[in-house]
Structure formats: structure tokens, C-alpha cells
Amino acid sequence: MSNSFHFGDSVTQHGDHNIGIVKNQGPVDPQAALRELVTAVHQLRAQVPAEDREVLDESLEALGDGAEASPSTLRRALRNISGVASLVRAGAPVVAAVRRIMESFDS
């Protein structure tokens, strides 16, 4: 049996005979995921250098409300945000929010 762990997962195991991790497998609400991302990015901004804040700001502007941007623009902005977030320890919530949005593309 293999377990799939992702960046940002927190797992605590107690006792014997544990069989795996249960994750929320419901459909992702794209607008809720976008709001979560925007909140997480704003919290992250204070913890990154000015040039990374600029990348985050430009990417959030490109995302807009998610409705007007083309899929390629959305993916590019999400990659840029995730890239900045992955460089700092405090970026885990941002990376998780980006993943939820990307999952909504596949839904």
C-alpha cells in the first residue's frame, strides 16, 4: 500500500492498524478557492522580498475574479504565485490554495 503525501499535509498517527489518510474529495468551488488564495497571498506578502511581492501583485491582478482570464493566463498566474510561495516556509497555505484551484479546472 502506498500513501500519497503532498506539500502542506500534516499527519498525526496514533495507535496501530491505521489504514490511510482521508481527504476531502468533494467538488471544489472555484470562487471559494480563489477567495482562499487571495487571502493566503495577502498574508504571505509581508514575508517575501519586494520583487516577490511584485510578482504576487501582478499575478493576483491577472487572476482578477477568475471569470475573465483565459485558462493560460490563469495557469501562468497560479504558477507564478506557487513559485514564490514555495520558496518560503509560510507559503504552504498558498501552495495548497493553488492546488485546490487547479483541481477545479479538472472538475
Rank of each mutant, 00 (worst) to 15 (best):
D16G: 15
L60T: 04
D52A: 11
T12H: 13
A92C: 00
A92I: 03
V28R: 03
V22L: 14
S10P: 00
V94R: 00
V22Q: 14
N24A: 12
A85S: 05
R79K: 10
L74G: 09
N24Q: 09
R45I: 10
T12K: 14
S59V: 02
V11H: 07
Q31N: 14
A50C: 02
S59A: 15
L63I: 06
E54Y: 04
L44M: 11
I21S: 06
S82H: 06
A62S: 13
L78W: 05
S10M: 11
A40R: 01
L34N: 00
V94A: 00
P93V: 12
D57P: 00
E36K: 12
N24T: 04
Q13M: 14
P27F: 13
R76M: 10
H14P: 00
R89T: 11
A67T: 14
L74M: 14
V55L: 05
G15Q: 04
P30G: 05
G66C: 12
H14S: 14
S86T: 04
D29E: 04
A85R: 04
L44P: 01
E61L: 09
A62M: 10
S82W: 00
N18E: 06
A67P: 00
I19T: 15
V48C: 09
E61S: 09
S72D: 15
V88I: 09
A69S: 13
V11P: 07
N18Y: 05
L60C: 07
A40M: 00
N18G: 08
